[in-house]
Amino acid sequence: MTTVEQDMSEPRTTGQVAARCEGLRKVYGEGETEVVALDAVTVAFAKGRFTAIMGPSGSGKSTLMHVMAGLDEATAGQTWIGETELTTLGDKGLTRMRRDMVGFVFQSFNLVPTLSALENITLPMDIAGRKPDTAWLDTVIDTVGLRSRLSHRPAELSGGQQQRVACARALASRPEIIFADEPTGNLDSHSGSDVLAFLRMSVRTMGQTVVMVTHDPVAASYADRVLFLADGRIVDEMADPTADRVLERMKAFDPASAKEA
């Protein structure tokens, strides 16, 4: 697991925070069917760090990510990406923010089937009408090891390769922060560890910021820090996680012992 010594103190100055939220609350439904997905969550993601969010099903981990990435609206509270407060932005602002500051990696790859691997990678910049930084693009492509597959369509790539394309797409525009939603959920363990190693490398050597939602302790062990969510609240966190420690912590969420959280 991680062997590099990390500075574990939480960076609080805005210059070093890639994204944060304060008093975040998200409620689905109304009245009797009301479900509180997030309840007064306050958290910050430091720049240049790899954070995993864990929790049992329904704990609100995906919702937290969606709201912080500007994909979903908060019921109350504020979120920022870099210096920008998302909660004040309209659709146009959110769109631009997603385009320019956020990278996404989804569980089900979500590549555009009509475009080649390379076209998929440069898609966010193409949408924005920006020229990709060629040198950076080359670095990214070489890192994910897809140079020989660039002209292939997604259907011609394996699942692992598709997810690596998705990672490269998230990285290519040098976003402020990358959100990954169960990136290994649809992959076998070998392909999965490739993708995770790549995400970690992008943080270590390229200085990127990655926030990953997962329920897999092994995947979480690749991160620098793990946040544990339960019933819409952050209940714990762990620095320098190992798979075993994470698994141990997760066991505490068994229904029988849930109340202690």
Partner: peptide, 12 residues
């Protein structure tokens, strides 16, 4: 697919 494009920053 359209949702993905929106997520990747395509405007309405």
């Amino acid at each position: 697919e359209l949702g993905l494009l929106r997520a990747l920053g395509m405007s309405r």
